[in-house]
Design a protein around this nucleic acid. Structure first.
Lengths: 208, 208
DNA sequence: GTCTATAAGTAGATAGAC
DNA sequence: GTCTATCTACTTATAGAC
């Protein structure tokens, strides 16, 4: 989306579209439901956005970059690695807590639409994985942490933050006996737990 | 599904249905495509399975229990916890490698269909989370591992095994530059890496 | 059991009045 | 810009011949 002005109607449509697409997925979403939720009719949606595909693309890019955290500023800094990891884990869990359905939605749609790579045109500059790699290697050289593969460490960290939200329906049944507040408490605990779990695994300091 | 006899046609339909539903999801799947893939026509599908919903339910339960690993035999044993963890990680990654699209499919459909709990009638006996909990607590008492919340440890372990497959399209772009064999190597490495990562974090032995 | 033909309903999209 | 009414295509499902 360009940085053009959006009138109130367009904004209402986009907001409703995002709600419905995220909840139902592209295939399950109905233009009629989006129109109803936006308080207008279908014809007006097609006036602003020519097709369902167009409308979807308009909301997906934003959802995608909501899911891909901006590691940039954090990892380019010169703080100790564990400080950066703690900041990432806390911020990322907080982010997903606010929009818990975004990760599953994004990943499902990416799998559905194989040629997304061209569409999304992910610019690796915006998502500086290389900064993360260097950051870990430096920490190893400084002997802040023991030798560890930066890619696996990154995937471990992200997995442990995101997966509970994607697997929530199963966790709710198998672990929390459908007690919704128990799940929320659990996620809150993870901000501390994940950092400690990683720290115990990779830091050179003796354990307490 | 009961353990009744299934004729060849039914099996062809079920097999085709599973392929299409898992690839496209319920909303994206078309009965016509399933019929084509099974080498029959739509009418015959409706003769055996009354509706799309019926056909879906027939394949979903199997997919679900393919995704939920049977921890039973493993965790009821009296082996050291790290031995059990290693066995779980290796077996589970091998399982998902064989059917890499099952996890995202199952989780997406569970989210789509809120009342699945009644439908699936998950019997907690088959999925003995309690055995895992006791197993961890025993290991803490024996001082094989340091004190750690069994629930978080379970979620950590499962997350690190499953998430790479769910997030594969993103990992492929951000980390592996679309080199598919690099992803496969990465997953293979994780069988060892995850176990070591957990061992370093929770065992009482000094690090090497 | 297996097929062809078709019914009934719904989806996305457009025409055209205001 | 916003609406009502409608078109066209597609989807699930069924009727009925063999």
């Amino acid at each position: 989306m360009e940085l053009q002005e959006l009138n109130a109607t367009e904004q209402k449509i986009l907001s409703a579209a995002k709600d419905v697409f995220v909840e139902k997925g592209f295939d399950g979403a109905r233009m009629q439901e989006i129109a109803n939720k936006a308080g207008i009719n279908k014809a007006l949606m097609h006036y602003y956005f020519r097709s369902k595909d167009n409308l979807f693309n308009a909301i997906f890019k934003e959802a995608f970059y909501q899911f891909i955290p901006k590691l940039g500023e954090n990892f380019k800094s010169d703080k100790p690695l564990m400080v950066k990891i703690e900041q990432f884990v806390v911020d990322y869990i907080e982010l997903i807590k606010a929009k818990p359905h975004i990760p599953l939605f994004v990943l499902h749609e990416l799998t559905r639409n194989q040629d997304f790579e061209e569409k999304m045109l992910i610019d690796n500059d915006n998502i500086p994985v290389n900064d993360w790699m260097e950051s870990v290697i430096k920490a190893i050289e400084r002997e802040e942490i023991i030798p560890v593969d930066p890619k696996h460490l990154l995937v471990n960290m992200v997995s442990m933050c995101v997966f509970p939200f994607i697997g929530q329906p199963i966790l709710n049944v198998l672990i929390f006996n459908n007690d919704r507040s128990a799940f929320n408490d659990f996620v809150e605990e993870r901000k501390v737990h994940i950092v400690e779990f990683i720290r115990n695994s990779i830091t050179t300091k003796p354990k307490s």
